[in-house]
Each structure stands twice: as structure tokens, then as C-alpha cells.
Simulated assay, not measured.
Amino acid sequence: MKDNGRRFSPVITDFIYAISGILFCGFALQGFLVPNKFFDGGVTGISLLIHELYHINIAIVIVIANLPFIVAAAFQVNRKFALKTLACVIGLGICLLVVPYPVITSDKLLISIFGGVFMGIGVGLCMRGGFALDGIEVLALYTLKRSSFTISEIILGINIIIFLIAAVHLGLPTALYSVLTYYTASRTINFVIEGLEEYTGVTIISGESENIKQRLVLEMGKGITVYKGERGFLKETYNISQPCDIVFTVVTRLEVRRLRNLVHKVDPKAFVFTNTIKEAAGGVLTRKERH
């Protein structure tokens, strides 16, 4: 029985993520965006634009608009992902048809911010469950193989076209507010996926590296990697250098300040720089499994 529980636990978790994401997206659409003729980016934005121009039910438009991208996902990613995405999109369509969401506000600023926030929460939760509510990234992957553009550039280009069409047909103010909606949704998606535990890589170069290594491991409980390097090479004394240990470690962004303070106490002249790490696993990291 325990083995069965463990086997089905990830499936149940993914299902909860998907249902929660669908409900949040439905709330964003029916409670904020659709009644006030606002837009988002990607296939959802295309669906909202078609809905406004041709007055077709938004639930039907979203499902139909995503179908070509779901088919492409079966070839570009895999069939399992495509089927999960199809189920999620159909679930959103059903949600939009049957759930009686109230219209929350007609204030444009509130719509653009909170409509984006709830949309971002919904899409982010679905992504954590291994689903997708928007096929725009599949199109970007397809185009990437046939052009020199990056995925971000392709998605940006598609969204620019969407917002330009919206500006022509529905007015520039609505299009600009919709850009804010899209930006808010994008940032919220990143937060939902990465959370407060987004990792930061920290590189430390110091003459007191031995003391710093000891305090990182014993006081902060961090794993470290040490590169052998040389320090010095100043303009006035270019030919003078010393061997040193270059210390690299990974912390959450909430721990960056504590780490900087620790290093500063040991060596105020230490050279410290950070970079964001999107995914990290293994080693001594303790983190919940990401879906």
C-alpha cells in the first residue's frame, strides 16, 4: 500500500496543481480581462483578440487556438506533454463555461495588475504540474530551429504583433495597459515556479579564502566548490600575483545578504559577485522536488 501511495502521489500533486491553475486562470479571464477587453500575451492574447473582434465565446476560442500548438508539442516535446496540455486547455475551456466568476472591477490599473497576477499564478501552477496553458513556447521552439532568433526574441516578436493589432482595433491605451498585464503575468509566473527559494550562485575571490571556506561550511552549512586561480595583476604591479582559492557556493536569494556580511567580516576587500541560477539539484541542496 505504501508503494502504491508513493506511485500515485506525484500524479495527485500534478492534478491539484492543474486544477488550481485552471481556476486561477479562469478567474483572471472572467473576473478581470474579458469583461474589460484587456489582453495578455501568447495564445491567450490571440484568443482574447479573436473574441473581441469576432465575438466568439472565449472558452471555444482558447481551445481551438491552442490545438495547432498542442499537435506541434507532440512532435517538438513528446506526446505525454501534449496530452497533458490538451487536458489542461480543455479543462480551462470547461471552467470558463460553467464557473460563474464575478466581474471584480472596471478600474484599468487594477485590471492590468491583478488580472496579470492571477493569470500568472494560474499558468505558473500548471507549469509546476507539468502542464501548459499556452502553446506560444512550442511555436517558439519550432521557429528556433529554423532561424537565428532566441526563444525570448521570438515570443517577444509574436507578442508585439498581438499588441499592435490590439492598439489598432481597440485603442492604444488598452494595448498599453495590456502590456502591463503581460509583464505582471510573466513576473508572477517566474515567482510561482522559482518561489522564494530561487537560487543564487556566489563566487568569492579573497586572500582569506581558507577562513571564508571554513565559515561557509561550518556556520552556514553550505557546500562549496574551490577553483585554483591567481589574484593580483594590478596596473601598478602587473607582474606580481599570488595563487588563491576561488570559492563558489549556491544560496537562496534570502541568504545572499547574510553571506555578504559574513565575507565582509572576514575580508572587507574580498571580490564577490553573484548570478541567478534557474535550476539546481543534487549536492547538499535541500529543496522540494519541482514538477
Rank of each mutant, 00 (worst) to 15 (best):
L196W: 06
F118C: 10
F27K: 06
V226Y: 15
S47V: 01
H264C: 03
P10Q: 10
I70P: 09
F191P: 14
H51W: 00
Q214R: 12
F15M: 11
D107V: 03
Q242K: 07
I94D: 07
T143L: 08
N159Q: 11
N4I: 15
V263K: 09
I155L: 11
L133Y: 13
T203C: 10
V217I: 11
S241H: 10
T143K: 14
I240S: 04
L180I: 14
L92A: 03
I189M: 09
L262W: 08
V89W: 08
P268Q: 09
R258W: 05
I94F: 12
P100K: 12
K288F: 08
I111C: 05
V43R: 04
I154D: 10
K84C: 04
L176Y: 07
L49C: 03
I46Q: 07
R187H: 14
L180E: 06
S206V: 10
N239S: 08
R146F: 01
S9L: 08
T225K: 03
I90N: 08
I240G: 07
L97K: 12
G120C: 04
L196F: 11
V217C: 05
Y54M: 13
K269S: 05
S20P: 00
I58T: 05
V284C: 03
A82M: 08
C126P: 06
Y101L: 05
T225Q: 10
A175N: 03
L285E: 12
L92K: 12
L141H: 15
S9P: 02
T200V: 06
G232Y: 07
R187F: 07
V98D: 08
I64H: 07
C126W: 14
K269I: 01
K265Q: 12
I193G: 00
S112Q: 08
I19H: 09
E255L: 00
F273W: 12
Y177T: 08
F118V: 02
N57E: 15
K108Q: 02
I64K: 04
A166R: 04
V117L: 14
Y199C: 06
